[in-house]
Computed example of a mutant assay.
Amino acid sequence: MTIDVSAERVIPLPPEQVAEYAMDWRHDADWTQGIRTAELTREAEAGGFGVGAEVTRTAYFLGRRIDYVLRVASYDFPRLLDMVSVAGPMPMHVTYGFDPHPDGTLARIRVRGGDGGFYRLAAPLMARQVRTNIGKDLRDLERRLTGAAE
């Protein structure tokens, strides 16, 4: 079984402002559930962050430490950041989208994952947990950017 979950939220700020924060790997641990550290471990060919860059993350999920590397597959600021895992416990594909909305920005996160060992057995639980986590990620992103409390 593979995982394919997504969440979306309207954030009352322009897409450029939301994307500037959310697409910056240096903020990953501030608003993304379970991520403890994120480090740019390979720059894009043109330098800095963009297609081909790699970010190494350490996270905790379902009580387990997970170290994985995401490579930027597509980068279209401020609209899209698409990353695929190139090292880690299971195949993973993470997509962030930020589109104009009458009330600000429609922010979306989609996570797709493949089968792999422990994670194959835990797929139904994982799908629910990932869906919950990315919903919280978007809530926390809005809180960080607007200073709002729910």
Score class of each variant (00 low, 15 high):
D67V: 15
D30C: 04
V55H: 07
E150Y: 14
R128L: 14
G135F: 01
A87E: 12
Q129R: 15
M90P: 05
D30T: 12
V69E: 03
M83K: 02
V111L: 11
A7K: 07
D28Q: 12
I35L: 04
V130M: 07
Q129C: 14
M126A: 12
H93W: 10
P78W: 01
L13I: 12
E142F: 12
L80A: 06
F77G: 02
R42H: 01
R9G: 05
F77L: 10
Q33Y: 07
G63R: 05
V86N: 05
A46N: 12
R128H: 13
D28N: 09
V72D: 05
T105M: 03
G147A: 03
A127C: 01
R42V: 05
V84I: 13
E142H: 11
P14Y: 05
M23A: 08
D28M: 03
R9D: 07
G52R: 00
G52P: 05
P124H: 09
Q17N: 05
Y96M: 11
L62M: 10
L80T: 06
D30E: 15
P102Q: 10
H27A: 08
S6R: 15
S85L: 08
L125A: 13
G50Y: 07
E54N: 07
N133T: 02
F61Y: 09
K136I: 13
R36D: 04
T56H: 05
R144V: 08
T58A: 06
S6F: 08
P89T: 14
R139D: 14
P78C: 03
Q17M: 08
H93M: 05
R57M: 14
G135H: 00
D24W: 14
T58K: 05
G135P: 00
G52E: 09
G104A: 01
P78Y: 04
I3L: 15
S74I: 01
P100C: 06
A7D: 03
A38Y: 02
G97Y: 03
D103V: 10
N133Q: 11
P89I: 04
E16V: 13
L13P: 12
V18E: 00
F98W: 09
T58R: 10
M23C: 00
R65P: 11
L125V: 12
G114L: 03
I3D: 03
R79G: 04
I134C: 06
E150A: 15
G34D: 02
R120Y: 10
A7P: 01
P14Q: 10
T105D: 08
R42P: 00
W31R: 03
A38M: 04
D4H: 00
Y119R: 02
D28C: 10
M90G: 02
V94W: 09
I134G: 01
N133C: 06
D140L: 15
L40K: 10
T95R: 15
T132S: 12
L121D: 11
G113P: 08
Y75P: 05
V72P: 14
M1Y: 15
Y96C: 09
Q33K: 02
M83E: 11
D103N: 10
I35R: 07
H93S: 00
T95M: 13
S74F: 05
